[in-house]
Simulated assay, not measured.
Amino acid sequence: MKKLLSILMIGVLFMSTAWSQQKAKEVEFYQGSYDDFLRKAQKLHKPVLIDFWASWCGPCKKMDNETFGDSDLAAYLEDNFMVYRVDIDSYDGMEIVERFGVEVFPTVLVADYRGREVTKLTGFYSPKYFKSSLEKINERNHLYYELGSSQYASNK
């Protein structure tokens, strides 16, 4: 009985370790000032997403958990965008809200790598619909693209 119990405990420990290593990747928001965020986006030539968020906003929390918690979306955003979160209740956040005229929460502002607004997405978006919307915005505005080796300049 003791042997069976110890084997069961080892199995549970193994399974919990394996599960914790397979946790879904979440969207990683830039940690730092808004100005530093824009400088890095310009340096990397990556378009930006700015998530306007509040702790008291139910749809903001839902989008945070369901949309920004999706591993496929997280990988897509990491490859194609710099992502920043604005807490609209902070002093700096209120200033950024005013700068872009954001009136509805949640709002995700899509901008080019220089921080020039392209469009705003307002309200809750599921992960698949959010990704699809961003792909359509890119098709119209050419915010990002993948270069094939034949498209690079050569020194010949």
Rank of each mutant, 00 (worst) to 15 (best):
residue 131 K to Q: 15
residue 54 A to H: 05
residue 27 V to E: 03
residue 92 D to H: 11
residue 18 A to N: 00
residue 50 I to N: 04
residue 105 F to L: 15
residue 75 A to N: 07
residue 116 R to P: 00
residue 139 E to S: 11
residue 41 A to E: 12
residue 38 L to A: 02
residue 61 K to F: 10
residue 133 S to M: 10
residue 83 V to D: 04
residue 97 V to R: 07
residue 52 F to S: 08
residue 39 R to P: 00
residue 120 K to N: 00
residue 101 G to N: 00
residue 36 D to Q: 10
residue 75 A to C: 01
residue 62 K to L: 14
residue 38 L to H: 10
residue 117 E to H: 04
residue 124 F to V: 10
residue 99 R to E: 14
residue 137 I to N: 04
residue 139 E to A: 07
residue 20 S to Y: 08
residue 101 G to C: 06
residue 37 F to M: 11
residue 93 G to L: 00
residue 140 R to W: 02
residue 97 V to L: 11
residue 49 L to F: 01
residue 95 E to A: 13
residue 85 R to E: 09
residue 25 K to H: 02
residue 142 H to V: 03
residue 43 K to D: 15
residue 122 T to W: 02
residue 137 I to T: 13
residue 134 L to R: 06
residue 83 V to C: 04
residue 129 Y to S: 09
residue 81 F to A: 11
residue 45 H to M: 10
residue 143 L to N: 07
residue 27 V to P: 02
residue 65 N to Q: 11
residue 75 A to L: 08
residue 49 L to V: 13
residue 47 P to D: 05
residue 80 N to C: 15
residue 49 L to M: 03
residue 64 D to F: 04
residue 104 V to H: 02
residue 50 I to K: 02
residue 89 D to Y: 09
residue 87 D to L: 05
residue 46 K to N: 01
residue 30 Y to A: 09
residue 116 R to A: 09
residue 132 S to F: 14
residue 83 V to Q: 04
residue 33 S to M: 01
residue 60 C to E: 02
residue 64 D to A: 11
residue 96 I to D: 12
residue 124 F to I: 14
residue 99 R to A: 15
residue 114 R to D: 09
residue 51 D to A: 04
residue 81 F to H: 13
residue 99 R to N: 13
residue 58 G to E: 14
residue 137 I to K: 07
residue 115 G to T: 12
residue 63 M to W: 03
residue 121 L to T: 03
residue 121 L to V: 03
residue 65 N to F: 15
residue 73 L to K: 06
residue 58 G to I: 14
residue 95 E to K: 12
residue 99 R to Q: 14
residue 117 E to C: 01
residue 138 N to V: 05
residue 67 T to E: 13
residue 102 V to N: 01
residue 65 N to H: 15
residue 125 Y to M: 12
residue 139 E to Q: 04
residue 130 F to C: 10
residue 128 K to P: 08
residue 119 T to R: 04
residue 52 F to H: 00
residue 70 D to G: 14
residue 26 E to S: 14
residue 46 K to L: 12
residue 88 I to R: 08
residue 23 K to A: 13
residue 37 F to E: 02
residue 101 G to W: 03
residue 92 D to Y: 14
residue 35 D to S: 15
residue 38 L to V: 08
residue 139 E to M: 10
residue 93 G to W: 05
residue 23 K to H: 09
residue 47 P to L: 07
residue 28 E to R: 06
residue 120 K to G: 00
residue 143 L to Y: 01
residue 30 Y to K: 10
residue 50 I to E: 04
residue 108 V to N: 07
residue 26 E to L: 00
residue 107 T to K: 00
residue 73 L to F: 07
residue 27 V to W: 05
residue 91 Y to S: 03
residue 32 G to K: 11
residue 59 P to C: 03
residue 19 W to D: 04
residue 105 F to P: 06
residue 12 V to P: 12
residue 80 N to Q: 06
residue 100 F to P: 04
residue 141 N to C: 00
residue 49 L to P: 08
residue 95 E to V: 12
residue 94 M to Y: 03
residue 96 I to P: 05
residue 50 I to H: 01
residue 27 V to S: 01
residue 14 F to D: 03
residue 49 L to C: 04
